[in-house]
């Protein structure tokens, strides 16, 4: 049972880390904690669902169109709301994302109603791969692969491309970055677009694992926050480590200690973690200079 618990934990951790990845990209560039992440992913997933269900678009095209939609959604949120904020505070920005979350949730409820749906995904969540007596559903396996690949690509992107470096510069000092000729506003929109797209991937995978409804992202979002904090809010590889750790800890706790308190353990872990190493596992501790 131990092995199976760990494998299942890894699988669910991959979902957390995908969402956490989306969150970290934004936090890295613009210091915003995006509470609307889950709902942005949910709306994108609904778009994919509608394309396939009502307009009979083949899966590949539906995914591509959904990505386009997600990119548009993320960039326009940044453009329409966040950019307009005058002298934003951390709290003000959080409230804006919370407000956006409510708008999106309300919109989803209005457009698609509260019924549970199922997203047609080419990979099954019931068929499994077996190895040494451990089972993992096909979709779990692909979630892990996708999350690792995405993380790796983004890691390279941030480190080596011009835009990636510009993004890091924007985070460190917007004014200086602008002086250096970086179009920081454009960079911010771009960040939101990428993050929203990564979120859409996570949303579709989570919906395919379970069901699609307007409240489906509430729990994964909180857990992904926890994994992002665990791994370090500014570290991309940290999300993978944090997600996997959280998934495994949760499952082991549920399997051996208490199922009842399983949903709380994530928060106990992060509070402990933060008391020991406030910046998370893989991020550098950053002290504000006066």
């Amino acid at each position: 049972m131990l092995g199976q618990l760990i494998v299942s934990g890894l699988a669910v951790g991959a979902c957390y880390s995908l969402l956490a990845l989306a969150m970290v990209i934004i936090y890295k560039t613009s210091d915003v904690l995006n509470f609307a992440q889950g709902e942005m992913a949910m709306i994108s997933t609904y778009v994919a669902f509608t394309l396939m269900e009502s307009h009979h678009v083949p899966f590949q095209w539906a995914v591509i169109l959904t990505f386009l939609f997600a990119i548009l959604l993320g960039a326009s949120f940044e453009f329409v709301f966040l950019r307009q904020a005058k002298e934003p505070t951390v709290l003000g920005l959080i409230i804006i994302t919370l407000g956006f979350e409510m708008i999106l949730m309300g919109f989803a409820g209005w457009k698609w109603g509260p019924d549970q749906r199922s997203l047609d995904f080419p990979v099954s969540n019931i068929e499994t791969y077996n190895l040494f007596g451990l089972v993992m559903s096909k979709i779990n396996f692909w979630t892990i692969v996708i999350s690792l690949v995405l993380m790796f690509i983004l890691f390279l992107f941030f480190r080596y491309t011009k835009v990636g470096v510009a993004m890091r510069a924007t985070q460190q000092n917007q004014l200086a970055a602008r002086v250096m000729g970086i179009r920081t506003k454009w960079i911010l929109s771009f960040t939101w677009a990428i993050s929203s797209m990564v979120g859409a991937v996570a949303g579709m995978l989570i919906a395919a694992l379970g069901v699609l409804d307007p409240t489906m992202m509430m729990d994964p979002l909180l857990k992904s926050f926890a994994s992002a904090v665990l791994g370090g809010m500014t570290s991309l590889p940290g999300t993978a480590v944090g997600g996997a750790m959280l998934g495994i800890i949760e499952n082991l706790f549920g399997g051996y200690v208490s199922l009842a308190f399983k949903s709380v353990v994530a928060f106990a872990v992060i509070v402990l973690m933060l008391c020991i190493k406030p910046s998370g596992l893989l991020a550098k501790h950053y002290v504000k200079k006066v």
């Binding site: 709301f81 003000g92 409230i95 708008i103 949730m105 309300g106 919109f107 409820g109 209005w110 698609w112």
Partner: peptide, 20 residues
């Protein structure tokens, strides 16, 4: 079925607009 959700949307919008 979801027409009541307009209230949620308006509530969210008020939050955003006031902060902005």
């Amino acid at each position: 079925a979801g027409i009541s959700n307009i209230a949620v949307i308006v509530y969210g919008l008020i939050m955003i607009l006031i902060v902005l």
